[in-house]
Design a protein around this nucleic acid. Structure first.
Length: 363
RNA sequence: GGCCCUAUCGUCUAGUGGUUAGGACACCACCCUCUCAAGGUGGCGACACGGGUUCAAGUCCCGUUAGGGCUGCCA
């Protein structure tokens, strides 16, 4: 970690949060979004929201709306990306690097795949999906003439891992992480029918959008060498990476539904203040070398940095979240407290009861 | 199975070779108080294990163990 290039000044970084609209906004995703946002603010950069909607089966419009709502509630606003009110309408996008819906960028991704074939870095493959499972190796590279003429519906395009030196991931949080090429398998970059896969599309889009720093969950670390190889094959500039630790449940296993609320909306509906939630999320894995606990979004925008992000995973602690919430609630004026409480008093207080005396009583 | 990441109080963490190992949440006790909170004071409580390197190791190296991730035509 000592070899981190921290001496290099970071100026005008471009970062993105690229969720897939396949469910509610998860706590972990929210923190990833937050860290990207804070990094952009801290260094005067640009925060982009791109929607990774290439999994046509699992995508839902509701998730997309959910995502936008969640981001708004947290106060994480994006400089570039899909329109809040019309996320599916690319003509409403904000920014010069659109469209910001990944599925709308398939032509660009496909062109890159064709180029990779021409360069000898990719090849047609007609193996059934299960055939190469576990080994990643197939003989298709030697059958290209034969495969050339079969319809695209019946073949995929694979990226070829050529022999060479180990791939080094320069990670701002973990230092240098090395992967041997023999341990990396050829992987599908375009599915039969022409739909690019994540590990490929993400590189083409990030490069096209001129991302300088990729800040994402640690679950992506092992896939990073594949992505770096794609950058290099296409002679694209490789961005800086920062893989932030995952959030675990109280028992140390990956945070999931059986641990209780895992989505931003659940916490919103339980009555947590967004300020408290953001503060808690930021402190989960980040500190500024002081004993301070309370940070507003504005404070964080000023102080956040990747250097002080922990490299080990953190367990979600509801008790501490509750404590933060209490802190922020006590800061509220009576007036604010009253207004914010209203939605939660529905089953106890009828609108008609909201006269001055009820109000006094409540306060 | 292979590869990768991680390892300080129950939890979040500070610590970058020499500290009585610090803070926060939770917990316990006391104080304050009409009650409950809040607040204050104090307490309990940790360097996963085993080898090295060094005058000196929580800090550096190796191994073990444990947890997590990737190994998908999911992202």
């Amino acid at each position: 970690m000592a070899s981190n290039n921290n001496s290099v000044k970071i100026s005008n970084p471009r970062v993105r949060f690229a969720p897939s609209p396949t469910g509610e906004l998860h706590i972990g995703s929210a923190r990833t979004a937050l860290f990207n946002y804070l990094f952009a603010k801290r260094y005067g950069g640009t925060f982009v929201l791109r929607i990774e909607d290439t999994d046509k089966v699992r995508n839902t419009q509701e998730s997309l709306k959910n995502l936008v709502d969640g981001m708004n509630w947290l106060g994480i606003h994006w400089d570039e990306g899909v329109d809040e009110n019309n996320p599916l309408d690319s003509s409403k996008d904000r920014g010069d690097f659109g469209p910001y819906l990944q599925s709308a960028r398939w032509q660009n991704q496909l062109n890159a795949a064709v180029k990779l074939i021409e360069l000898g870095h990719a090849y047609d493959c007609d193996c059934p999906p299960q055939e190469t499972f576990g080994t990643g190796k197939c003989k298709c590279y030697d059958r290209q003439k034969e495969l050339h003429d079969i319809p695209h519906e019946e073949k995929s395009i694979k990226f070829r891992i050529n022999p060479g030196p180990p791939v080094v991931v320069h990670d701002l949080i973990r230092g240098e992480v090395m992967f041997r090429r023999e341990d990396i398998q050829d992987f599908v970059i375009v599915r039969p029918g022409g739909l690019p896969t994540y590990n490929f599309a993400v590189v083409i889009d990030d490069a096209a959008m001129e991302m300088t720093h990729i800040i994402r969950g640690e679950d992506h670390l092992s896939n990073t060498p594949k992505q770096i190889l794609v950058y290099e094959a296409l002679q694209l500039k490789v961005p800086e990476f920062a893989h932030i630790p995952l959030i675990h449940g109280p028992d140390g296993s990956k945070m999931s539904k059986r641990h209780g609320a895992v989505t931003v909306h659940e916490y919103k509906n339980e009555g947590f203040l967004p300020e408290a939630f953001v503060n808690y999320l930021a402190r989960l894995g980040w500190n500024d070398d002081t004993d301070r606990e309370i940070y507003s979004l504005a404070d964080l925008e000023e102080l956040f940095n990747l250097k002080q992000v922990s490299s080990s995973p953190a367990c979600f602690d509801r008790e501490k979240l509750l404590w933060f919430n209490g802190k922020y609630i006590r800061e509220l004026s009576d007036e604010e407290l009253f207004e914010k409480s209203l939605p939660f008093l529905g089953k106890y207080v009828k609108p008609d009861d909201l006269n001055e005396s009820t109000r006094k009583w409540l306060l």
